[in-house]
Amino acid sequence: MLLLLSATVITAATMGYIKLPAASVLKILLAKLSGQAQWLDGMNPLYPVVVFDVRLPRILASAVVGAGLAVSGVIFQAILLNPLADPYTLGVSAGAAFGASVAILLNIWWLGAYSVPLFAFMGAGLTLVLVLYLASGGGGLSSNNLILAGIIVAAILSAGISFLKYMADEQVAVIIFWLMGSFASKTWIDVGLTLAFISGGFLVALFFSRDMNLMALGDRTATSLGVNTGRTTFILLVTASLVAAVCVSISGIIGFVGLLVPHMVRLITGPDNRRLVPLSLLTGALLLLIADTVTRAVLPSEIPIGVLTALIGGPFFCYLFYKQQRFRKIL
């Protein structure tokens, strides 16, 4: 699986406006990684720039975000005991979108290119705090409370976004474009930041994967098997939401990856989170990378990645849903 992912990264790097042979991509990679600049002598000096500074950051960003969304989806489904939960269930995406819209509308650029992602992240973080606060009102963080609080907050925020769009005049296109998601012009710094967050989230998910299994048996049973359910739920929810928030801030709203990937992987591995978490990570990375490569290099003109994943993911999910009605094995 890891090999497949690496191969896809290299293949994706060869594709694009300038076609490159896989051998040169490998050569460029090796030269950069080992610091042996003389290996590149005799190659068109444009190629290393194209591969290393333009394509690779974007390719890696899409893979890392795909991985993050998938892992976050696994956590949400396990904690909320709801196979239909996804990284956006708690309104994280609406919060991020609202934050981004505010930044775009008010023309806040004092942090350069990072203003919009930063605002998106703050929006997502504040939404998470609000949702957790609302849901913890009576009797702990129950799955139903969380989902309801998430829906309420998301509904208010999307009304807010509509209002911002209405106010936006000429920036409305920028907002809409941001919301639909894109990996265009990602830098190594973007990649590094997301990678750091998502690796952290992945390790947390792996650490608690056994506890997530037990929580599928219900609160009382999980407690009697030694899980501190309240604390574990809280840690995992915050982790998953932060991972989702980072993903959204970097790439805009990309739907269906977080919902679909855990389902697909569960069909193969079964619901044991100790296998589900790592395999979803790799599958998510692979799928989003392929999807992004398709919009970037295969399609005649680039369409927003969020639209593409929804267009492909939606019907595929319908298919899975239909199969599951017949075999009753997913839920």
Partner: peptide, 13 residues
């Protein structure tokens, strides 16, 4: 160990 009264599992273990 506890054997609970109501019991419902959502995932196909």
């Amino acid at each position: 160990a506890l054997v609970p009264q109501n019991f419902y599992i959502r995932f196909p273990f």
